[in-house]
Every structure is written in structure tokens, then in C-alpha cells.
Design a protein around this nucleic acid. Sequence first.
DNA 1: GTTAATATTAGTAATAATTATCAATATTGA
DNA 2: TCAATATTGATAATTATTACTAATATTAAC
Lengths: 128, 128
Amino acid sequence: MNTTKYSRQRETIKEYLANTKDHPSADMVYAHLRKTIPNISLGTVYRNLNLLVSQGEAVKLSFGNGPDRFDGNITPHYHFVCTECGYIDDLEISEDDVARINDIASENFDGKILGHYAYFYGKCGSCK
Amino acid sequence: MNTTKYSRQRETIKEYLANTKDHPSADMVYAHLRKTIPNISLGTVYRNLNLLVSQGEAVKLSFGNGPDRFDGNITPHYHFVCTECGYIDDLEISEDDVARINDIASENFDGKILGHYAYFYGKCGSCK
DNA sequence: GTTAATATTAGTAATAATTATCAATATTGA
DNA sequence: TCAATATTGATAATTATTACTAATATTAAC
């Protein structure tokens, strides 16, 4: 078996993810947690982030370059990356929007589209 | 200045990309090119792939895990990844589709959306 | 509250993917 | 043919992440 036991490290990671909109990388989580748990190791951060993702308690975001980012907001939404300042913002979407985009792609395809991964880019409110 | 000089390595990479629909990784390009240029180096492959991308002659694709893939087809289109067999297929789209998707995301956003990166997943024609 | 079973950790080594460095070679135009 | 310089192969370095392991922490049963 593999029952999950409590760990302060994991709880602190969850708490941090729940309270930030920074979409932090593992390194950023590590830097933050060292303030309260000085001898936490980066491996522990990665291990727990991946565990949370596999349990559906967090989401992993990949943006082509740079390290993966993590999001504690598991409600369906897209992300926006400002090409000017790098800020990652949340984009509200409805289930309908997701379906509409899948439909657009399905038009000329003979397989079965189950979902998509997407992010948007441009200039954020303060940079434009 | 930095004028581009001919190189057989680069020409062979372009030719390979132009004639395959495999969306190869740098490693796959390297393995293929070694057949005709046995002592080509992986660094040369990476250097030229990135050069072609920066000159708009190829496109780099990132799929969250695994190495980046490269596509010699620079006409706008999306990609589909089969979750069963890993096959990467092209998805036809119109400029209109791209604009429609940007519009969907723009609805509740105060910045300026200039574009998006997306790929679709599901089961391909033969796996479904 | 001790104990036993085992999940988790810190620390470190290893791996994967990619980029940087550099002396030798190839291309190009004069 | 020559000089200027872009490109290469080889290798080292870097970045991001995962794997390994002995020590520690958690948990449920006594």
C-alpha cells in the first residue's frame, strides 16, 4: 500500500500554493519555504509538488522555456503570459469555451479530441 | 555583421524537416543525419534547428514532458498528440479559428492578447 | 507512552535536455 | 590565393528534474 502520512513540508507547500497567484516554479516554492523550514530540500519540494499534481490538488504549467510552474488553483482556467514583464495571469473561462475550442480543432480531424493545453500571450494590463 | 554562409549540415537538416511529418526532436534529427554525415555533432543540430526557428523557417514545439520537437511546416496549424501511441499529427486550422480562440480568451481580460500556443490530445484515428 | 511498520525527509548523486566554449575547418568575395 | 569570418565537431558546462539512501517522522496498535 501507499497511504499518505502527514508532513509539515507538504502542508506548507499546499498552504503557499493556496495563497499565491504567482504560479511559482519549484525553485520559487523552495525559496519561500526555506524561510519557515530552513533545511527543507529542493527534492522534497519537487516530490510534493508532483504528488499534489497527481492527486489533483495542483496543476503543472509548462511554457516552452524556463522551469515548470505550479498553480494551486485547480478550477479550470487558462493562463496569460506577458511578453513584456513575464507576469503570468489567470484567464477566466467557461466549460463552454473549452468545448468550443475542442470543437474548432475537431472539425478537420478523424481521431477523438479529449482536451487541449493552451496558454495565451501578449501585453498585460499595465504593460500595454 | 552576421551573414549566413552555406553549410551542408544546415541544408541537410532543412531538407529532412521539409520531407518528414514526424515532428522530430533534436535527437531524432541527429540520428537521421548521422546516416549521411556520420561525424555531425549534436550541438550542430541544436544550433541549426534554433537558427532555422529564429529565421522563421521551422517551428519549435513543446509538450510539457520530453524533448522539444521541430516542425518544418511553417504554415499555421495546431498539433494533436495521441495519448495512446504518442503520434503527433497536424491539425488544419484557418486564421479565423486562431482569431476565434483569441477572442474567447479576451472576453474577460483587460490586457492585449496577441496570440496563443496550444496543442490537443486524445486518441488518434487508429487508436480510437 | 512504547513499539513496530512504513511514509517522508535531507542530502546528494544521477539523468535529461540544452547551451556555451573554442580551436580547427569551410565558405565566400576580393 | 588570400583574408575575413561563419560554421563545425568535440567537449564542458548549465538547467531542470528525478533517483537513491540512511536517518527521521508519523501513525495505529498495544
